[in-house]
Amino acid sequence: MIKISFRVLLIILICHCNAFGQVNNALLKNVQAKLDKVTDYEAEGKMKTNVAFLKLPIAKVKLYFKNPNKFKLKSENGMSFVPKGSMSINLNNIFSNNKFTVIEAGDDKIANTNVKVLKLLPDDDTGDLVLTTVYIDPVNALILKSRTTTKENGTYELQMTYGNYLKYGLPDKIIFSFNTKDYKLPKGITFDFDDGSTQKSAAKTNVPKKGEIEIVISKYQINKGISNDVFK
């Protein structure tokens, strides 16, 4: 088993971060209150990678969380490609800096649910983070979507679908979208077998490529206590 840290997912834990504690926004407070019910959890998930240059089978994963901000994603079998990246570091930046301005940006709809849109602007504009937009379902006090724009690493998005663990604010499904760079091996390095079949599509140049990771989560075990060793 390899231990892999899926720090990106920290975004779903934003309410656990002290940062939000100081945000004087009723909606965010509600969200935080809901998430505070969970001190730790362990869950099983199936991770599907949709990236043009990665043809990977669905991976069985385990997710671990412990208050306040410990999170770990482990693959159950085989190898996994786990997205990491500067974005997660940037997220940490927001929450550790504790300084951002919340702007209410009106209402929107996600899959027939009315949502409130909040824009979080970092007070420190020297970092990579430019803007984080969160879409909150005010009725259930849940974050359905967030979008983060960075200077260097493009935009990435998190969409969450809730079901069985709605009352803890824990999603059944997470879709994480991000920008990928071009992957190109030098020709000739692989001595490939040319089977004569035509290639699917000419690569679209200059269009930023999107990658997507989809994790379907089940069997949450909430507040059963987790050893810190898991996160090592």
Partner: peptide, 13 residues
């Protein structure tokens, strides 16, 4: 499996 097919490069698992 690292593969180059036409203009595309990709990895198969």
């Amino acid at each position: 499996v690292f593969r180059v097919k036409g203009e595309e490069s990709f990895i198969l698992q």
